[in-house]
């Protein structure tokens, strides 16, 4: 199988590492070769963060380049727009509609662009946007946005739902399991 590419983007501290851990675990148990690339350190302090998940028969590069991503999973709307150039033709963006102002917007140096979903769609991107924060709150914690997004993403994979649920059980602490399973179900819809 040709290598498939999933980019996970968001704001440092939003929990993208758990999402990539879950995907890595799931795809490995499906028998794929997998590479996951993260950024640690300075970039985590509220900056823009990106994680690459690649899977297939044999994966070489640890990173995803422009025009290569089958999926961009975004925790925040502006970040989806930032990484739009990485989307493959016909690729899909699965995004949280939450808006977090970056410091240059907070200080008034820049404006937060409006109407991002429509603008991305006009560029040919398939955009599946949902209010993951509300779903996460409904599930029991604002921190479950990552699992809501995974639930949404799972709709576009042929991997059976129970495999996703098994991956969640393997990757999250037992006392958060019920909350995360609920978050996944709300995302998957």
């Amino acid at each position: 199988m040709e290598t498939k590419n999933i980019m996970i983007v968001g704001v440092g501290g939003q929990g993208s590492l758990l999402a990539s851990k879950l995907l890595g675990h799931l795809l490995l148990t499906q028998g794929y070769d997998v590479k996951v690339s993260e950024v640690h350190g300075m970039s985590q302090r509220g900056g823009s963060v990106v994680t690459y998940v690649r899977f297939g028969d044999k994966v070489y590069s640890p990173v995803i380049d422009r025009g290569e991503a089958d999926f961009i999973v975004s925790f925040e709307l502006l970040e989806a727009a930032r990484y739009l150039p990485y989307l493959k033709e016909g690729g899909r963006i699965v995004t949280n509609t939450q808006r977090i102002d970056p410091m240059p917007v907070v200080t008034g140096a820049c404006a937060y662009p409006e109407d991002l979903i429509r603008k991305m769609e006009e560029k040919g991107a398939l955009v599946d946007a949902m209010d993951c924060l509300s779903c996460a709150e409904q599930a029991g914690s604002v921190k479950a946005v990552n699992i809501v997004l995974m639930g949404r993403l799972s709709r576009y994979f042929e991997i059976p739902e129970e495999k996703w649920l098994e991956a969640i059980e393997a990757c999250v602490p037992a006392h958060f399991r019920q909350m995360n399973l609920k978050a996944f179900a709300l995302g998957r819809g």
């Binding site: 502006l78 990485y86 991002l116």
Partner: peptide, 14 residues
């Protein structure tokens, strides 16, 4: 690959 016409505000770490 495609990108939006308008510039995307940077998000530096803080």
């Amino acid at each position: 690959s495609v990108c939006l016409e308008e510039s995307i505000p940077p998000r530096p770490p803080v």
